[in-house]
């Protein structure tokens, strides 16, 4: 585990010191500004809109940093072959992959929680409002979503043969993962057997990002998250990530570095 943590710290430092955080800072300013503007333009429930859009902004900035981080590190690790030095050390490929995932996730936590703090600060200190408990639960859901996407992104990085491939695969997985609800709806329609089989495969392979979307129900008075819901979402996030990690690990073990 010490070696995994060493890779995690290495990755974290690498990402933090790269220009990714400038991009994040700009995105925070732009998103918060846009958020503020839209909440002013909306009539009534200003803080509600502000928090709603703020949560969306957290998700977007987390995703942005993930995609940029994947692109930057692919160039260093794979194109410039820096990975050779890691893999020639007494470190298993699984440890390397896990360390990278955790390093990326830590940066994502920093990005999402950082923006969350900004939003809470603005709502409480400038707006004089209160932040519902569900807001914090939404943040945890976003972090879980980021964990799943980070595992997927890093797995793609181990499989893909180009930086563009990694970014595109991750981007489209996010896009399609948000459409799982539509796939579920299609499954209930009158369709041919083979189309349904295909849809079912897509349904089970893609991450169900809809499951992490709590922000749309931030002000749903009937929504109270119980232990059962928490258990479900945690189990789903970690089991899905674990399977993806295993696929990435197997691929990395088989991969040749010319």
């Amino acid at each position: 585990m010490k070696r995994v943590l060493a890779v995690t710290a290495f990755t974290f430092r690498e990402l933090i010191r790269s220009r990714l955080l400038f991009v994040w800072l700009i995105s925070v300013i732009v998103l918060c500004g846009l958020d503020f503007l839209l909440s002013i333009l909306s009539f009534g429930s200003t803080l509600q809109i502000f928090m709603d859009l703020g949560l969306a902004g957290m998700e977007i900035s987390g995703l942005l940093v993930l995609l940029l981080g994947l692109a930057v590190t692919y160039t260093t690790e794979m194109d410039q072959k820096a990975i050779f030095l890691h893999l020639a050390k007494p470190l298993t490929r699984g440890e390397y992959l896990l360390g990278r995932i955790l390093g990326f996730f830590l940066v994502n936590c920093l990005v999402v929680l950082g923006m969350g703090l900004v939003i809470v600060g603005l709502v409480v200190f400038l707006g004089g409002g209160t932040v519902p408990v569900l807001f914090y639960e939404c943040v945890v859901f976003i972090l879980l979503e980021m964990f799943v996407l980070t595992t997927l992104g890093l797995t793609y990085q181990m499989i893909a043969t180009s930086m563009v491939g990694v970014v595109l695969y991750t981007f489209f997985t996010v896009f399609l993962g948000q459409c799982i609800g539509e796939v579920q709806w299609l499954l209930n329609q009158q369709l041919s057997h083979w189309v349904k089989v295909l849809l079912r495969v897509v349904y089970y392979i893609l991450p169900n990002l809809e499951a992490f979307n709590l922000k749309d129900r931030l002000y749903d008075p009937n929504l109270v998250l119980g232990w059962a819901q928490w258990q479900d979402i945690l189990l789903y996030a970690f089991s899905y990530s674990f399977v993806v990690f295993l696929i990435g690990w197997i691929n990395l073990e088989k991969r040749e570095f010319r």
Binding site: A6, A9, T76, Q80
Partner: peptide, 19 residues
């Protein structure tokens, strides 16, 4: 080729910890 974001000391420390 090394990650450009680290110092020489940090890199050696990292590779040492892998050992």
């Amino acid at each position: 080729y090394f990650s450009k974001q680290h110092t020489g000391r940090e890199l050696l420390g990292y590779f040492g910890s892998l050992h």
